[in-house]
Amino acid sequence: MDEKVMLVSPSGEKIEKKLVCFFKSIDDDRPNIKNIPIIAIDTGIMNGSNYVLEFYWEQNGMYQPINNEAAWDEVKKTIIDVINGKIEVAGVL
């Protein structure tokens, strides 16, 4: 069964999305995202034959778009590592 997550806006509006991945990196060589929860959500939108994923990172209790270029680079690297199987799962929260 697909994992789901509810996105809740400040006005109380809720929208349910398919959760693809939810993690936080504990790598010292990824300092811009270390210990910051990052969530990947399937938007359900197609771009040609590709699927559009949305990424948020937690900032002050709210999940925001990743607007930091260095952090975004590290997120992309992490995703590539996951796809390539070069990931160690240290635990769950």
């Binding site: 997550v5 993690f23 948020y56 925001q64 990931i87 160690e88 799962v89 240290a90």
Partner: peptide, 21 residues
């Protein structure tokens, strides 16, 4: 690379509800 996996039923997002795509 090392990760900790997480799970949440609800997350708070901005009004626009649009992340980095």
């Amino acid at each position: 690379a090392k990760l900790i996996l997480m799970k949440k039923n609800e997350i708070s997002v901005p009004e626009e509800k649009k992340g980095k795509q």
